[in-house]
Design a protein around this nucleic acid. Structure first.
Lengths: 191, 191, 191, 191
DNA sequence: GATGAATGAGCGTTCATTCAT
DNA sequence: TATGAATGAACGCTCATTCAT
């Protein structure tokens, strides 16, 4: 129900849910465990969330928002396009790395049947600043005149793939390899 | 002699499982439904698969193998590198498009906790021909001298992302847009 | 505060279980029936007992304790040995007769594979007062200087056998036949 | 069905069943395992036994007969009563010891709900020679003029109890302790 | 007769959700 | 609001039995 009563409890529940989902997957997520992990009674969770489904969907939005705020922090869109893009790219990389768990969750559940379509839409809305930036890049003739969705996936996809590879032990991540990837990516999308 | 073990049943079960997983997600997968969909008794499924978990894991490998066979079909690795790469890239695109369901399943479960690590390893083994090809490309000075994992993600990632975007209604997929993406990708990884 | 854990439910469950086990045997015991018989939901049984096995084991201990308390009731161990022994013997006989069901259960499951070894040990502990008494009898030179276990089986065994015979319709049980058996038994173990 | 076809198979099935029952208890007995242990197919067991229940009941009778034959072997009922009784008592003791497993099974299932009443009756019939002997003892004025059932339980019960105690590690069994028990028992029932 | 794959009713157990306190 | 015991539908899996070969 109301989501303004005790914000601390909500965050506790979110953190517990995230932890448990990452540990045991969504299928293994039990409401009683979420509650226990958050030092709450089972019923309490149902005061803040209608049901399990609602909890998952809310958590998704919560994490999406948090991540976006983090990597847009301190970005000044009025700066030179190339600089903004570079800053955002590295910021996104670092935030994704530092919050692998959340990112894994976000990726894993974006296309799962748990997420309701309105949540997906809201989730896209959150990325609006990025879409705007890319459109500006195309308008300024800095990027290939390609669909923005494609551009975004070209920018973001490789980051995810590299971090995946890193966690599979396939690659190292350091200033050099990050730069290397950045060069590759830019080579691909620059006009 | 009793009835022989009928291995076509395994495929029946796989198809039913895939269908149901895609319809309702893994959490909604019920063994009884799998059996019914495959016109079998519940217990019969357990003759061929130890349990639900085993079924999912086996299905994953089955689809991975099938997909790989499909897009490597008719590829002659002795041909010119650029040609082989291009053929594979478009073959992979088309197979992924035509078997979106299987691909979605493969993507969705690769990193899920359902898959046991040995299945992941076996899954990688299946892609060996691709790794070999990329290494050849690097050796021949045709591709950036970058970690093969990164190269692969640069090649495959954008395809997945574009098809996702397509299913979200964000882009069209046709000869032109495919070519456009291919150019982008190649621009990115060519030496 | 939520409802308190209601420990009388445990006894309800015990009684239902005992009733059903005696009616249909252990193999025919169904958790759902236990719950229904106790006017509870299936799941409730699992709040108080880990699983079916645990239920059986706990029930065993419960009945063993209850029976022991009953036949030791009003016994004053400070009295003359012969009197204490006689009182206990007849008390045991009567309690076993009046609670044939429980006794049947106790006998039947003592050596069955359902009972875990720690339960068997705890079960022995319950009989400690009896062992002590017999040792006192030996020490006072009233009983054959034989292993206490043997003595006990000489005392208790015939009671069980007679009640069995009674339920098979082979013998009558009355003051006379009980006395007759008591004489036989005592003749056998007195020093 | 027919029980004369392949007697070897029947014995194989009996042995396998006994082994498995003793290992895992009756509740854990699976027809498929019985078959496997006997190197037969599941269906084969159903050629020789109507169902699981029938198998258990037949096994009971089989073992009861076998045990009785064993301990009556070489007994000449025409000999002096005291000698016959003593011989039988020790023979029963030894056979029970040497075939603890069978005996455990016989004891455990005699009163279980698995045994049908006609099997119990048939089982009693097998002990007829013993009843006859005891009646003779009473007639000859050698035994207390007590119901034969009681006498039997006085004779047989202690043996079972002692062997139980032995397996619980509570007592030693050797010529001396056996004799000791024999004296106790006889003291109890002699006229 | 022998085989063992197939069947499917049935049962133990779980867990999302409710509700008395 | 918070609690956590209670609920019971639902599901995974088993296993006695059948039956096609």
């Amino acid at each position: 129900m109301a989501r303004h009563r005790d914000y601390t409890k909500i965050e506790q529940i979110f953190e517990s849910t995230l932890k448990l989902v990452l540990e045991k997957g969504f299928a293994g997520l039990k409401m009683a465990e979420v509650a226990k992990e958050a030092n709450l009674a089972t019923g309490t969770v149902y005061i803040y969330f209608k049901d399990k489904d609602d909890l998952i969907n809310q958590l998704y939005l919560f994490l999406k928002r948090r991540k976006t705020i983090l990597f847009l922090q301190g970005i000044d869109q009025k700066e030179d396009f190339d600089i903004v893009l570079k800053k955002i790219w590295f910021a996104y990389f670092e935030v994704t790395m530092q919050h692998v768990n959340e990112s894994a969750f976000l990726e894993q559940y974006y296309r799962s049947p748990f997420l309701k379509s309105n949540v997906k839409e809201e989730s896209k809305q959150i990325l609006k600043p990025i879409y705007d930036l890319l459109e500006r890049g195309v308008a300024e003739g800095k990027l290939c005149a390609v669909n923005v969705e494609i551009l975004l996936s070209q920018i973001v996809g490789p980051i995810h793939e590299m971090i995946r590879a890193y966690h599979d032990g396939a690659v190292e991540i350091n200033a050099e390899s990050m730069n290397q990837l950045y060069q590759l990516v830019m080579k691909g999308i620059k006009a």
